[in-house]
Simulated scan of single mutants.
Amino acid sequence: MKLQANYKNILCIRPDNLGDLLMSSPAIRALKETFNAKITVLTSSMAAGVAKLIPEIDEVMICDFPWVKNAANTSSDHFLDIIGDLKKKNFDLAVMFTVYSQNPLPATMLAYLAEIPVRLAYCRENPYDLLTHWLPDQEPYKLIKHQVRRDLDLVKSIGATPSQENLALIQTDEAWNKAQIKLNALPIDLQKPWLILHAGVSEQKRTYPLELWVQAAQKLMLKNDYQILFTGGAKEKALTDQLAEASGGQSFSLGGLFSIEEFVALISKAPLVISVNTGTIHLAAATKTPVIVLYALSNPQHAPWKSYGKVLPFTVPNNLQSKNEVIRYVNATFFSKKIKTVSPADIFQAVQKIRNGKTLIIPEIPESFIN
């Protein structure tokens, strides 16, 4: 594809969750640096909070699309409004970022109707005039890349490369000071050993059993005298309350306590984050915080990027398997070997290795993901 140096006003469409947008940020950086462009991101209300912390993004537009899982009920009139707003902004280029199991054409249609002249995306079928710059999607049938690598390769096709490939977020002393004020209202002593346990999930299939979270927390408190900070969003407060009450000892419920800026600050100060594969692990990657991931094997693309720590995979129960045929192909081809649920002892051993300085960088696609 021919490189054009006049992309000064670029639209990036990534209407998914917080972690998805964060994984696209190195590719967004590549676009901004290569073309010295203004970057506008069209994303979901679920990702809007982190969008303002990504330094390469200049403007955020929000729309909850019906082809992306969310709790919103967007009317058709809102789509017409979005198309009108996009048209007024006179974008030079639209880039649609997708997971390999997603169809890019609904988002592409918005860019087409908004008369954005250059439209770039991966697509499995021939998009004809909907895309002016089309990369035939070989994933997952010929290869599987990490999501960050997938997005970087997409923008590289028009000549865009970043100065660095890491995830990065804007962090401020003010956010940490506000977080500390909230922590000081609780009997938490950050001068003593502590770590974060994050149990909330955006999809039920990623759930790690509550009783095993409790056993892991109790083991860490008993053996290492850790203070356990159960974190989560406002909707997860009931969960963090339940976990802290069941765990007892030096465990604390912080569900709904922090803004996104304060939560990022807390993660950046944490010695270690233990979480399921959700947005929290990508925030940890962006703050260079070691992480242990209890990874439900649904999509092998989303390990924490360039992070130190450990991935502990487990098989998604049959009744929660995706109905998406692309994901079902990956499950049958790569995840046919069943992996039992991670035990609290597995988590404790991983923590001990990190405490002893035996932490390795997590591969882009961990070997344990592929049979």
Rank of each mutant, 00 (worst) to 15 (best):
A303M: 10
P127H: 06
S76Y: 12
L130N: 08
Y7H: 12
E262N: 06
P136V: 11
Q218L: 09
E203K: 09
K87H: 13
L18T: 07
L210E: 13
A121W: 00
T172K: 09
F314P: 01
G357N: 06
G19T: 08
L283K: 02
Q138L: 14
P187W: 04
I10H: 06
N17E: 12
A107V: 02
G309S: 09
L167P: 01
Q191N: 14
G232C: 06
I54P: 00
I362N: 02
S202H: 09
R328E: 14
T359D: 05
P162N: 06
Y141F: 15
K52P: 00
L254Q: 05
K288S: 13
Q102N: 13
A51V: 07
M109F: 11
I57W: 00
D81M: 11
W134A: 01
L130W: 15
N224V: 00
N356V: 00
W305A: 01
G200C: 04
L21S: 05
E115N: 14
L86R: 04
A27V: 10
Q242L: 13
I170M: 08
N103T: 12
A284P: 08
H302G: 14
V60Q: 07
I260A: 04
P313F: 01
A107E: 13
A216E: 10
T207D: 08
I228T: 02
I82C: 04
P127V: 10
Q321I: 09
L183G: 01
L42C: 10
P26Y: 00
